[in-house]
């Protein structure tokens, strides 16, 4: 089962290696990982998406908690939360297919953020599922390059 885990950590050198190490030690491939600052300057939030056996993931969650630099671990899978991914997609699109492409981008609530004679760059902020759908629909136009963040997530309601 897929889990979205949020880990608040002290922003210390080596902390990413410690956390990645816990997953690799158990033979888990991290599907996505996003790290960024939080409202508190020296605390970072890591959002980790990982697929695996529930019991072993519970163990990994406990081990994450045990790390000296970890402040809090939340497995969002059991809570209400909002998650988003961001993708930047470059399409080598000839001028004559552009209207069709722009229509598609509009339908999926994407944004064109750069235009040049031979390429269009599209920005999409969506849930991972939706993002997948968008990418599938853009593929026929010829995706030249794509860059994606990992999922970031936050719980709903009051803190």
């Amino acid at each position: 089962m897929k889990h979205t885990i949020s880990v608040l950590v002290e922003n210390q050198p080596g902390v990413l290696a410690r956390i990645a190490g816990l997953f690799s030690a158990r033979g888990y491939n991290i599907t996505s990982l996003a790290v960024g600052e939080t409202e508190i300057a020296d605390i970072s939030r890591m959002t980790i998406v990982v697929d695996g056996d529930n019991r072993i993931l519970e163990q990994v969650t406990k081990q994450l908690n045990k790390l000296v630099d970890t402040l809090k671990v939340n497995d969002f899978t059991r809570e209400k939360y909002i998650a988003r991914d961001l993708a930047l997609i470059k399409i080598n699109c000839e001028t004559k297919r552009r209207p069709e492409l722009l229509e598609m981008v509009k339908v999926f609530r994407g944004k064109v953020i750069d235009l040049s004679p031979k390429a269009v760059i599209i920005e999409v902020v969506e849930t991972e599922d939706k993002l997948k759908a968008i990418i599938e629909n853009l593929r026929p136009f010829g995706i030249a390059e794509m860059s994606r963040t990992g999922t970031i997530a936050i719980s709903r309601g009051k803190k």
Partner: peptide, 8 residues
Amino acid sequence: IDPTSIGK
């Protein structure tokens, strides 16, 4: 004392 030992 170590929660990770329990249920492992």
